[in-house]
Simulated scan of single mutants.
Amino acid sequence: MSPSDNAAKQLVHIVDDDEALRDSLVWLLESTGLAVSAYASAEEFLAAWRPDITGCLVLDVRMPGMSGLELYEKLNGMHSTLPVIFITGHGDVPMAVSALKKGAVDFIEKPFNDRDMLKLIEQCLAQERSQREARRQGAEAQRRIEQLTPREREVLDLIVAGRLNKQIADDLGISIKTVEVHRARVMEKMGANSLAELVQHVLITSPAKAG
């Protein structure tokens, strides 16, 4: 497996109180070229967590002190965007299923196959890269919208609503020529080459606003 440059910048965070399992996973992942950080407890990971960390989280469901599920719920409350894979013992499967319903990516039962674990982690990293890129694009589109003048913003809203130039001119009480000038400036400022692209730029700002 040869991770891309993007994947190499991501970090697989392993949180498990079982030292032997932690060491085994670190060795497995590092042998494929993935960057890994391991933690012996949920509390230890929480102390190191930052909103901007990337990658994914491999989390044991049952640990002394704060459990994996408690950590997961705490991270959700802090709007963490890290995809999570739970490691479970047989008796913990119902808890893991509950976590899936709350947004966890998947769970894997001990003892697990190395190949299955690697496949899950690669899926998580790909998902996280995709989500991060979508957030970046949404934030960039929002930044461009905020650079529009109030009149350009009105024209943009009407364009996205499907209004034609003549209708926009009537709506705003301005000439069609003026609408065309505003429309050209909107397209330029938004970095859009077509009407479809302009609409897409506006639509992707919704996740940015939600986040």
Rank of each mutant, 00 (worst) to 15 (best):
G211C: 10
K119L: 10
M66Q: 15
L156K: 08
E152V: 06
G191Y: 03
E180R: 08
P111M: 04
G191K: 06
E197W: 02
R129A: 15
Y39E: 10
Q142A: 12
T81M: 12
A184P: 03
L28K: 10
Q200W: 14
S24R: 07
A210D: 11
N113S: 14
E180K: 08
G162M: 05
H13K: 10
F107V: 08
E180A: 11
A161E: 00
V84S: 05
R144D: 02
R22C: 08
C124I: 03
E154V: 01
G89S: 14
E133K: 13
A104F: 02
E43C: 07
K177D: 14
K9W: 09
G68L: 08
E19G: 11
A38S: 11
I174F: 05
V199M: 08
N193T: 09
I176C: 02
K102L: 12
V58W: 04
C56N: 07
D5W: 05
Q167K: 03
A169W: 10
A104M: 04
V93N: 05
A35F: 04
S98G: 12
L120G: 01
D92Q: 11
W27S: 14
R163C: 09
E152K: 03
A35T: 13
A99K: 12
R183Q: 13
R151N: 13
A38D: 12
T54H: 13
D16Q: 00
A104N: 01
Q142L: 14
V105A: 14
N193V: 11
S130W: 08
V179W: 09
M78Y: 03
N76P: 06
A208G: 04
M187W: 11
M1W: 11
Q10W: 02
R151V: 12
R115L: 13
C124Y: 03
A104G: 07
L82G: 02
I14W: 04
E154H: 13
A8Q: 14
V179F: 09
N6F: 07
K209N: 13
P150E: 03
R144E: 01
P150R: 02
D18Y: 05
S67K: 03
R153F: 12
G68V: 01
H90T: 13
R144Q: 07
D23T: 07
A169S: 05
M78C: 10
L195P: 09
N113L: 08
D114C: 09
S31W: 01
E19P: 09
K209E: 15
M78N: 05
Q137E: 15
H182G: 00
V58Q: 08
E188V: 00
E128W: 03
E128F: 07
F86H: 00
F112M: 12
I159F: 00
